[in-house]
Design a protein around this nucleic acid. Structure first.
Lengths: 126, 126
DNA sequence: TGTTTAATGCAACTTAGTTGCAAATATAAT
DNA sequence: ATTATATTTGCAACTAAGTTGCATTAAACA
């Protein structure tokens, strides 16, 4: 049970994710939406959108929470194992459409895989 | 410049890492050492030990900071690319001695790789 | 149009982690 | 052994991310 009502705030949030290709930190969203909705509302809408499978979340380098809408985000299902990339120079975070093969681990039941790559993005490599 | 003086607090901290094989969260360390040293001291000793290469740090599922001393932790150098495993049932976190091959990513300069696997550990699989 | 239930705002709170500064202590020099 | 000096620690106050409870607002559906 994710989003039940298409409120103005939900629409606003979704349009932000539709328009861009990058990931967005919650901190960034709270800041940029502070005139349009409450901090708590930002957190709760993101939570519901993720539960629905519209977006997915992950942790950045400093433990901050990020959200992104990627091509693999499908309703009611989210089982992508793509890595996330954080540019240490400009701070940009994005989903990489690359498959990371995880070897089977003995004696353990692996249920989720999170891969965070850090380095320089295309612009900052120069 | 990591540890300069072998204080009682530093010795205590190191002995904790020597004795166990698991990773330890900062929260856990602050709690278990609260009668022996200040919270700030815990944070600072861990920071210095990591700078020295005696231990290494990483983020757990909720963005919490964890530290561990693994076989690959060597003085003045720490370039292991092993995954970390967090058991969602009992909460145990550990380093896995497995190599995760990261494919080369075009147009990006990858400098660090963090892999967090979540699932059930040996004990909790039953 | 009214009723129900989900969603929001607000304020207060929790928790992880940080900072500045004075006091304490390990280590090196005398 | 004593002193000097630079590192380390404790403390208290702070910052920032994220959460909670509750009263109010507003979708959606009959």
């Amino acid at each position: 049970m994710g989003i039940k009502r298409r409120t103005k705030s939900v629409t606003t949030m979704l349009s932000i994710f539709e328009s861009g290709e990058e990931a967005l930190s919650v901190v960034n969203l709270v800041e940029r939406l502070k005139n349009q909705m409450n901090k708590t509302t930002v957190y709760r809408i993101l939570e519901r959108l993720e539960k629905e499978g519209a977006i997915h979340s992950f942790s950045g380098t400093n433990g901050l929470k990020w959200y992104a809408k990627c091509s693999q985000c499908t309703a009611h299902h989210h089982n992508d194992i793509h890595p996330h990339f954080e540019c240490k120079d400009c701070g940009k975070v994005e989903c990489l459409e690359v498959n990371i093969p995880i070897p089977s681990i003995e004696d353990r039941n692996i249920q989720s895989v999170d891969v965070l790559l850090t380095g320089q993005c295309t612009n900052c490599m120069i």
